[in-house]
């Protein structure tokens, strides 16, 4: 599911940085997550590509009753900092800003490349991921933060 979603996003030339739970998995987290969190470039051409792909995936709002008024277009992206969607491919969250990091440009600057088969994309660095969890400070993220900091410590231990 995630591999196929990431491959499709890359194939369409969509500019994004992987953040959230799947990014944590890339860095070694053992926690389960069922949604793909992305920080996207809010430039009009990129948003148009995202809208086209999400329409093909029949994206709809996650967690609300079906068939409520919902317009998936560039204007919705412009006026919404976070879109939480479900789709035929799986759940996807789209952010124009990462808390504690900034917009796509800032996220890109704090990202690193990941290769899965022929697909290459960018993921937030572990340090930036920790900074974003610290900035959000939700109670439910506390355990996640503890795990991410442990991964960082284990990595540093491994380098010594």
């Amino acid at each position: 599911m995630f591999e196929a979603m990431l491959a499709a996003l890359v194939a369409r030339g969509i500019r994004f940085v992987l953040v959230g739970g799947v990014a944590a998995t890339v860095h070694g987290s053992a926690r389960f997550t069922n949604d793909l969190d992305l920080c996207y470039d809010a430039a009009p051409d990129n948003v148009e590509r995202l809208v086209t792909l999400l329409s093909e995936w029949k994206a709809y709002l996650r967690g609300v009753e079906p068939e409520l008024p919902f317009v998936l277009d560039a204007r919705t992206f412009r006026t919404t900092p976070i879109l939480t969607l479900t789709s035929s491919m799986g759940a996807i969250d789209l952010l124009d800003q990462v808390p504690g990091v900034g917009d796509y440009r800032a996220a890109f600057a704090k990202s690193e490349p990941v290769q899965i088969g022929d697909v290459e994309f960018r993921t937030l660095t572990l340090e930036a991921l920790i900074a974003s969890k610290q900035a959000v400070r939700r109670k439910k993220d506390l355990e996640h933060l503890i795990e991410l900091e442990a991964i960082l410590a284990l990595r540093r231990e491994g380098r010594r």
């Binding site: 967690g63 008024p69 919705t76 879109l83 610290q134």
Partner: peptide, 26 residues
């Protein structure tokens, strides 16, 4: 329709990812 669409976008975000922030100093 558009106004309700924006409302439902926020409702989805509220239900799916909003959680209270931890109080006090870290």
């Amino acid at each position: 329709y558009r106004l309700l669409s924006s409302f439902h976008v926020r409702q989805a975000e509220l239900r799916e990812s909003f959680a209270p922030r931890a109080r006090g100093r870290p």
